[in-house]
Amino acid sequence: MDFVAVAPESLRLATLARRVAASDCTVLIAGESGTGKEVLARFIHRSSPRASHPFIAVNCAAIPENMLEAMLFGHERGAFTGAHASHVGKFEQAQNGTLLLDEVTEMPLGLQAKLLRVLQEREVERIGGRAAVALNVRVLATTNRNLRAEVTAGRFREDLYYRLNVFPLSTSPLRDRRDDVLPLAMRLLTSRCRAGERIPALSADAAHLLLTYGWPGNVRELDNVMQRALILCNGAVIEAEHVHLEGAAGLWDPPPAQRVEAVMPESVPMSAAAIAARAASSALSQSLSVAERDLILDALRLDNGNRQAVAKRLGISARTLRYKLAKLRESGVEV
């Protein structure tokens, strides 16, 4: 999935990511589980001069400790029991490209020392091998933990921490970037629909539920919710009853500054409740507009600019599509 950046925090992160992508320095991406750390890593790779070369991701938490070393560095035939053939490791597979070490804090201390040597020497020696292989690989790493605290606790090597933490980036939880919720929801719906299949729209009530939920599981939870909604939806619109959330405990309470933001001149008397309702309505309208824009642009890309195919995919008339494209042009969007 493409990196979605509509909220101010995400736009700032995308700007930093593009800047660091032009370099070859190591990047450490921190953030809660499900916030899109790997998506950001892929965005950095696609924005870099290495984009035409491999992007190899290794989930350090998902591979057993006794297999991770051979997976990363490779091995020669006969290096250990069961090694019936030589195997190229992930570092060599990523040659001239990018290697992502996902959840690097799950790597055992003994292997951390070997990883540090590879990063320092920029060469790797397969298990059971005698010759070192020179590497030209850009390394990215992610973690959902406080890596500085892991170092203090003795669970992560301090020298490796400094080797990885050359350029730190942080992905914010979804509850802190509410403007990303609807564009992400529509992007996820688009990715789950088969080619040529109509992409359902979100009703205002359904959108309101998505915007006011706290998303403890972040984008991964949003993806699950949209998959369920897609299955339950029988028509062209996802309604509130199709959106199944984890319960009221997850509902998001806007900060006071957002709840009482003035949207009318001070001379017009309004209750705090009315101001809050007007502010929420304005935020919802803006987020829906952004989601509609992204949905139209995605459809144009998927159908190679074929207006008739785009209108069919979106379930609208060609005349309505022309009107919406004209409005996008007026707002400065090139279509």
Score class of each variant (00 low, 15 high):
residue 123 E to R: 12
residue 220 R to V: 00
residue 234 N to E: 13
residue 162 Y to P: 09
residue 317 S to A: 12
residue 204 A to N: 08
residue 217 G to F: 13
residue 28 L to T: 08
residue 39 V to P: 12
residue 177 R to Q: 01
residue 330 E to F: 02
residue 15 T to C: 06
residue 69 E to W: 05
residue 30 A to I: 11
residue 88 V to S: 10
residue 142 T to E: 05
residue 318 A to W: 09
residue 196 G to I: 00
residue 119 L to H: 02
residue 284 L to I: 00
residue 23 S to I: 11
residue 273 A to C: 10
residue 93 Q to E: 14
residue 192 R to C: 09
residue 302 L to V: 04
residue 214 G to Q: 06
residue 151 V to N: 03
residue 127 I to M: 14
residue 17 A to C: 02
residue 87 H to A: 04
residue 273 A to M: 13
residue 136 N to D: 12
residue 20 V to W: 01
residue 278 R to C: 15
residue 235 G to E: 15
residue 330 E to K: 03
residue 107 M to W: 04
residue 77 R to H: 08
residue 256 P to D: 14
residue 192 R to M: 12
residue 183 P to V: 04
residue 306 N to Q: 11
residue 291 A to R: 11
residue 284 L to V: 01
residue 148 R to S: 10
residue 225 V to P: 10
residue 249 A to E: 14
residue 320 T to K: 03
residue 88 V to H: 10
residue 208 H to I: 06
residue 76 E to L: 07
residue 283 A to R: 15
residue 64 P to R: 09
residue 37 K to S: 14
residue 303 D to H: 13
residue 284 L to M: 02
residue 137 V to C: 07
residue 66 N to K: 05
residue 224 N to Q: 13
residue 18 R to S: 07
residue 186 M to N: 07
residue 106 E to H: 03
residue 236 A to G: 11
residue 130 R to T: 12
residue 334 E to N: 10
residue 294 D to L: 11
residue 22 A to Q: 15
residue 89 G to E: 00
residue 314 L to K: 00
residue 174 L to P: 08
residue 92 E to V: 07
residue 196 G to Y: 02
residue 326 A to R: 13
residue 158 E to K: 11
residue 173 P to Y: 09
residue 316 I to R: 10
residue 113 A to F: 02
residue 170 S to P: 05
residue 220 R to M: 00
residue 314 L to G: 00
residue 51 A to V: 04
residue 191 S to I: 07
residue 148 R to P: 07
residue 116 L to Q: 02
residue 271 S to T: 15
residue 53 H to A: 15
residue 200 P to V: 04
residue 5 A to G: 10
residue 310 V to N: 00
residue 154 G to S: 05
residue 119 L to V: 00
residue 189 L to R: 05
residue 73 F to I: 07
residue 294 D to A: 06
residue 255 P to R: 12
residue 235 G to P: 08
residue 172 S to C: 12
residue 272 A to E: 15
residue 128 G to L: 09
residue 296 I to S: 01
residue 54 P to M: 13
residue 203 S to F: 03
residue 197 E to H: 02
residue 159 D to L: 01
residue 289 S to N: 12
residue 154 G to Y: 03
residue 330 E to P: 01
residue 12 R to D: 10
residue 210 L to I: 02
residue 1 M to A: 14
residue 53 H to R: 15
residue 128 G to Q: 05
residue 51 A to W: 03
residue 188 L to I: 11
residue 71 M to R: 14
residue 18 R to H: 02
residue 22 A to T: 12
residue 333 V to Q: 02
residue 43 F to N: 02
residue 136 N to W: 04
residue 143 T to V: 08
residue 84 H to D: 13
residue 249 A to F: 05
residue 241 E to C: 11
residue 273 A to T: 14
residue 84 H to V: 03
residue 311 A to Y: 06
residue 173 P to S: 05
residue 182 L to S: 09
residue 100 L to D: 12
residue 35 T to K: 13
residue 316 I to D: 02
residue 245 L to W: 00
residue 301 R to I: 00
residue 222 L to W: 12
residue 172 S to L: 12
residue 276 A to C: 13
residue 133 V to D: 05
residue 319 R to V: 02
residue 220 R to Y: 00
residue 34 G to E: 07
residue 11 L to Y: 02
residue 98 T to N: 04
residue 160 L to R: 10
residue 277 A to Y: 03
residue 335 V to K: 06
residue 110 G to R: 04
residue 237 V to P: 11
residue 332 G to D: 03
residue 21 A to M: 10
residue 75 H to P: 04
residue 209 L to S: 09
residue 115 L to A: 08
residue 257 A to L: 13
residue 27 V to M: 09
residue 258 Q to V: 15
residue 259 R to M: 12
residue 229 A to H: 01
residue 326 A to D: 14
residue 3 F to K: 01
